[in-house]
């Protein structure tokens, strides 16, 4: 292995009775990488994460965490991991500091470093102000952050977060995303979600899982490069002669939406957009909007997931 792989999971399988929840999934995670696990509900994301963190044993397959086999040597492998399950594993009758102290001791942090680690985790998750309050009295967003603090308190090499932004308000979501991005600088992060913009905001690489199988895997850089044409929504005050517009070579596809608005698929680069604007001006169409549509991940996701469903 040339570059340091912190997680190597090969050929993971997991059955629940006859239901094949995870089917031959491979996961590799490099140092300093944020991997987004994406998939519809019930795709097997949580099961995969439970296997990676030792909560579930895989039916077959192999999991190496920093080159330590999770099945042969669970204690040492788990020391390298921080995990936030879907439901934050917090004791509601403890204060934030008490809880984090307990987690820190469970993670074998030496006594002399306890206060330092707790303070660092509190500060990174902006929990310092509420550190003396009972977790049960905190809002869902704060409880979620306590869950994240618990996952990073021992400064693990790999942080695994299962739907970390569920149930948070938009400001909190922004903060958590920012935190995940920060974590990605030092730690490697695996993040599961079904919120597409989240992946675009924080991940380096994305792996889409559907019905227990990996159906797509790519880096976000490559996704944005691989797109040769762009989608735009264009709107006018009055109806226009669509045939005229359609005749332009740069327009590869065009469909009508309501209220004199059209969906255009444009070939070429940004320059083509100004060409269209100029063309509209020339014909004295009263152009009121041109909105770029982010294609990329959403269309990839919908294509993969829906095509599969229709076929099935």
């Amino acid at each position: 292995m040339s570059k340091q792989f912190l997680i190597q999971a090969r050929n993971l399988h997991r059955h629940y009775d006859t239901y094949h929840a995870v089917n031959a999934v491979n996961i590799q995670l490099k140092q300093g990488e944020v991997l987004g696990l994406l998939g519809p509900n019930g795709a097997g994301k949580s099961t995969t994460m439970n296997m990676l963190t030792g909560n579930l044993a895989p039916g077959s397959g192999e999991i190496l965490i920093n080159h330590i086999d999770l099945l042969d040597n669970p204690k040492r492998a788990k020391e390298q991991l921080g995990y936030l399950p879907e439901q934050p594993p917090v004791y509601k009758d403890m204060t934030v500091t008490e809880y984090l102290r307990y987690c820190a001791i469970l993670r074998h942090i030496p006594k002399k470093d306890l206060t330092k680690s707790i303070d660092r985790a509190l500060q990174r998750c902006s929990l310092t102000e509420v550190r003396k309050r009972l977790i049960g009295n905190l809002s869902k967003g704060f409880q979620q952050r306590v869950g994240i603090a618990q996952a990073i308190i021992h400064n693990p090499l790999v942080v695994i977060l299962d739907e970390p932004t569920v149930g948070l308000d938009p400001v909190q979501i922004q903060e958590i995303r920012h935190l995940i991005r920060e974590l990605g600088d030092e730690h490697s992060v695996i993040l599961s979600t079904h919120i597409l913009p989240e992946v675009q905001a924080v991940c380096d690489r994305v792996q889409i899982i559907n019905k227990g199988q990996t159906v797509y895997e790519n880096t976000l850089d490559q996704i944005s490069h691989s797109i040769s044409h762009m989608n735009y929504e264009i709107g006018f005050t009055h109806p226009i002669d669509t045939a005229l517009l359609n005749a332009l070579d740069i327009i590869k596809n065009m469909s009508e939406l309501s209220n004199n608005r059209y969906q255009l698929e444009i070939a070429g680069d940004q320059h083509s957009v100004s060409e269209i604007a100029a063309f509209a001006l020339q014909n004295q169409w009263q152009l009121i909007e041109i909105t770029p549509k982010k294609v990329s991940l959403e269309s990839i996701f919908l294509d993969l997931v829906h095509v599969k469903e229709n076929a099935a």
């Binding site: 439970n50 963190t53 030792g54 669970p74 204690k75 040492r76 399950p85 594993p89 469970l106 993670r107």
Partner: peptide, 9 residues
Amino acid sequence: TFSLLRSAP
């Protein structure tokens, strides 16, 4: 909360 214990070393 049991998964806290289960994912701890």
